[in-house]
Design a protein around this nucleic acid. Structure first.
Length: 252
DNA sequence: AACGGAACCTGAAAGC
DNA sequence: TGCTTTCAGGTTCCGT
């Protein structure tokens, strides 16, 4: 689930595997011979800074992940790229190919345009309220706007709005300061939960095919709301499936 | 400028 | 069983 928690986990993995080491082999010759200085994250983007100032941006799209392998290990199924240092090979695997890897000398526009990152910059209720108020769409769509808050995707938005008891179709303008505070709390909790799910020396998905859904609301239309037992509904907002409880999520 | 919708690509799960 | 449809954690482009 490449949303903020998964990407943060990927960041920590890449940092552990690569920082301080020199690239011995990579998908781009520009990277070979460079030492990896740092691995940063903003929203769903990763930025690796190399000793010579070269930058490597990585976005995991829908199905991307980084996996640690031995340099001599065969290519993974759907492996798209690799970055090797002494003894460690980081493999980029992405079945759907929505992810991106970009070598650049300057920050990408997509990176620079990101709004505040909840972990890097903190998630302030007041700033969130101001950003939301500028949009005239539904709260759910506004939360997923990367310029409002970097890193929030379909799952975090869905879970946070359920926590806040707010109907995802509510208009941002209609939210009270209390509502915004509740959304902020919901997001912080969802991010913390997401991070707690991450484990292992691999940025792969926690849930392999067939594993059970670790979320309370996301992906559970038709099931009883964990809070009030009303059957949860699925609607489409901004082209994305959205699950919510019509019983206890209020429309503002 | 802002919004909805299609496109990008591939696989898994559900439906018939 | 097998063929078809639907859906998927994200972004970007295009036409209105």
């Amino acid at each position: 689930m490449p949303e903020l928690p998964e990407v943060e986990h990927a960041r920590r993995c890449l940092e552990r595997w690569l920082v301080g080491h020199t690239v011995t082999r990579a998908f781009s010759p520009i990277l070979v011979g460079e030492r990896v200085r740092s691995v940063e994250r903003r929203g769903k983007w990763l930025r690796l800074t190399m000793s010579g100032g070269v930058l490597l941006f990585s976005h995991l799209g829908m199905t991307g992940r980084w996996a640690r392998r031995a340099p001599e290990a065969p290519a993974e199924r759907w492996e798209r790229a690799r970055v090797d240092v002494d003894g460690v090979s980081a493999r980029y695997v992405d079945p759907r190919r929505f992810g991106r890897l970009v070598v650049a000398r300057q920050d990408l526009p997509a990176w620079s345009a990101l709004g505040p990152d909840p972990l890097v910059d903190g998630l302030e209720t007041r700033a969130l309220g101001l950003a939301l108020a500028k949009r005239s769409r539904t709260v759910k769509e506004a939360l997923m706007d990367q310029a409002v808050l970097a890193g929030v995707g379909n799952i975090l938005a869905t879970e946070a709005l359920w926590s806040a008891r707010i109907d995802p179709r509510s208009r941002t303008k209609a939210l009270s300061p209390r509502d915004v505070a509740a959304v902020a709390r919901g997001l912080r909790a969802a991010i913390a939960r997401g991070l707690a799910l991450q484990e292992g020396d691999d940025s792969s998905y926690v849930q392999d095919a067939g594993a059970d859904n670790p979320f309370r609301v996301y992906g559970r239309p038709g099931q009883p709301c964990p809070r009030c037992r009303t059957a949860m509904k699925r609607v489409v907002l901004g082209g994305r499936g959205t699950t919510f409880c019509p019983g206890c999520q209020r429309r503002s």
